[in-house]
């Protein structure tokens, strides 16, 4: 009896940091934000319960258009990242051996030793009107005047894909590594072409990794702030900018809270949809990540 109580106490003590972490830093602020999002300002410093903040979102086109744009662009970025990461992961998992494999993974990780802000500034140096790419284009005669490559959707997508690549490659490489070489050989042996083997054997096997990587990249992209703001400028129009503006510029916390909740809802809905469409469960996906 004593030992059971003691083991319970031990378990509780071991879990305490995690529970405190989750409770104080994740659950509590979100409850606070949820409550805040339902409070309307009726007079200076007087707030009442109401759905006004959410109504504001639907009635002001800028808000919901930015919201829809963020969702669409994030899905696009996730898809592009997947397409780019797949061959790299395939190479790391199935071709590279020993040291080469470690070096390749390290190369993917290397950009993350620099802060996201500095990395994005690096892209700005490359892409701006007086930047490296513009200069190079003029030097080889492909352009006769400085080219502005910043502040458009292409630049935003480029920056976001670059930031998400590692988080796609690692789960993908993990998933592909567990594919038995003989299974791939059997696919060829029974008459499959490269495309058939990829489509019917490699991709289905890598599905948990594909979904895990996509969820991570999608969530990172939807919630990104620095990259769209710096590379997109005024044309960035990312939803996190609206949240930032409400909280910091306009000091309208309830409106910002409502936007925050909507963004959370959006990413949850899209992740759920993605899992349903690919027939994966959250459990198996998390294991892969």
């Amino acid at each position: 009896m004593m030992t059971r109580q003691a083991s319970r106490l031990t378990l509780f003590l071991l879990l305490a940091p995690a529970i405190l972490w989750l409770g104080l830093l994740i659950v509590l602020p979100h409850v606070e934000i949820l409550v805040l999002s339902f409070s309307e300002r009726v007079a200076p410093r007087v707030y009442a319960f109401g759905l006004g903040n959410y109504l504001e979102f639907f009635t002001e086109p800028l808000y919901w258009r930015t919201f829809a744009r963020t969702a669409f662009m994030s899905i696009l970025v996730t898809a592009l990242t997947l397409v780019l990461a797949f061959p790299i992961a395939l190479y790391i998992a199935r071709v590279a051996q020993g040291r080469v494999k470690a070096i390749l993974l390290l190369l993917c990780l290397l950009p993350f030793w620099v802060s996201e802000l500095v990395r994005t500034l690096g892209w700005m140096m490359l892409l701006r009107e007086t930047g490296v790419v513009s200069y190079a284009l003029r030097a080889v005669g492909l352009a006769d005047q400085p080219v502005e490559l910043l502040y458009n959707d292409g630049a935003v997508i480029l920056g976001l894909v670059y930031g998400g690549l590692l988080f796609m490659i690692v789960p993908l490489a993990n998933a592909l590594e567990s594919l038995e070489p003989a299974v791939v050989e059997a696919g060829f042996d029974l008459g499959g072409s490269r495309w058939t083997v990829l489509r019917r054997i490699v991709i289905p096997h890598a599905m948990p990794g594909i979904v895990a990587g996509s969820i991570i990249v999608f969530m990172l992209t939807v919630g990104n702030f620095a990259t769209p703001v710096l590379l997109g400028g005024k044309n960035g129009l990312w939803f996190t900018e609206q949240i930032y503006a409400q909280f910091i510029t306009r000091f309208n916390w309830p409106q910002g809270a409502a936007f925050g909740m909507l963004l959370l809802l959006l990413s949850s809905a899209i992740v759920w949809l993605g899992l349903r469409l690919t027939g994966q469960s959250l459990g198996s996906t998390l294991k892969q990540a």
């Binding site: 003989a182 299974v183 050989e185 696919g187 042996d189 499959g192």
Partner: peptide, 19 residues
């Protein structure tokens, strides 16, 4: 390999677990 009139039973059998 995919054009030879030869088929192989692998040591590990290598059945396709996704099918």
């Amino acid at each position: 390999a995919n054009r030879r009139p030869v088929n192989m039973v692998f040591q590990s059998l290598a059945l396709f677990p996704m099918m």
